[in-house]
Amino acid sequence: MLLAVDAGNTNVVFALVAKREIVARWRIATDARRTADEYAVWLNQLLGLEGYSMADVNAVIIATVVPRALHNLTVLSTKYFKVEPLVAGSDAAPWGIVLDVPEPQTVGADRVVNAIAAHARHKTDLIVVDFGTATTFDVIDYNGAYKGGIIAAGINLSLDALVSAAAKLPRIAIEAPTDRSVIGRTTEDQMHIGVFWGYVAMMEGLVTRLRAEIGRPVKVIATGGLSVLFDAHSDVFDAIEPDLTIRGLSILYERSTARA
């Protein structure tokens, strides 16, 4: 089975994939100092809880936007799974799609992998919205080429900045306000309205502008942990695909091994 690893700025996601089907997934906070041995102890226990063992893994692919985390993840693969990992975007696992931007080397691995998966499932012009540490909006044309996009602060980052800069504002949870009124009666109500509906307005406004600039029929795909929450309060998305990045890694692994 394939172990697909998506190392983001906030979390590292490990997923066990068999024939493109995700059979198990686990998440741990990103810490570039975490050693291969620490990953191995944690993963060994979780694999066992799902009825698997390390011996069931015969391939590893890694996508990371945290360069310092790559070394320990590579050691994890070679030492504990006895395989040389494929690193998304490397010579052994090239993207296989056109990155039609002036500085293709600066595009985050997660964004390219999302583009690969989205185009494989939807053969049309696409906007992929990924709710992570940052919220990214990526444009993929009907040929599968990555055309560029938008980077905005994630909603948790926005809330953290607000609370840390305003001494009297309380910490609140990321959730939809209890009703649709945008006149808050308490400080917490006002914060919920500003953070949540403000974010929905930003998201819908940027998608509207992207649609207008593309000028052709476009599908909007959402991924990331908060996509389901926002989908319940907006009709801007055509599909919710929370496992888009892992599915893209699975596709990239298949293409790379076939090429080799």
Rank of each mutant, 00 (worst) to 15 (best):
V5S: 02
N11M: 10
V13N: 07
V17S: 03
V23Q: 13
R27L: 05
I28F: 02
A29C: 00
R33F: 03
Y39T: 06
L43Q: 09
N44F: 06
L47F: 14
G48P: 01
L49A: 12
G51S: 12
G51Y: 11
V60L: 05
I61E: 07
I62H: 03
A69W: 12
N72C: 01
S77D: 07
K79P: 01
E84Y: 01
G89M: 06
S90F: 01
I97V: 15
D100N: 15
V107A: 08
A109H: 09
V113M: 08
I116P: 05
A120Q: 11
A120E: 14
L126F: 11
I127Y: 10
V128G: 09
T135S: 06
D138A: 14
V139G: 01
V139S: 02
I140E: 12
N143I: 06
Y146Q: 11
K147Q: 15
K147E: 13
G149C: 11
I151S: 06
A153G: 03
G154R: 06
N156T: 13
D160R: 15
A166M: 02
A167I: 09
R171L: 12
E175R: 15
T178I: 06
I183C: 08
I183D: 00
G194H: 10
G194N: 05
G198L: 08
V200G: 04
E204L: 12
E204R: 11
L206T: 04
V207G: 07
L210I: 15
E213K: 14
E213V: 04
R216G: 00
V218R: 07
A222V: 05
L229N: 03
F230N: 07
D231M: 00
D231G: 13
S234G: 10
D238C: 08
P242V: 11
P242A: 10
P242T: 12
D243N: 15
L244C: 09
T245W: 04
I246H: 10
G248K: 04
Y253T: 04
E254C: 00
R255W: 01
S256I: 04
S256M: 08
S256N: 09
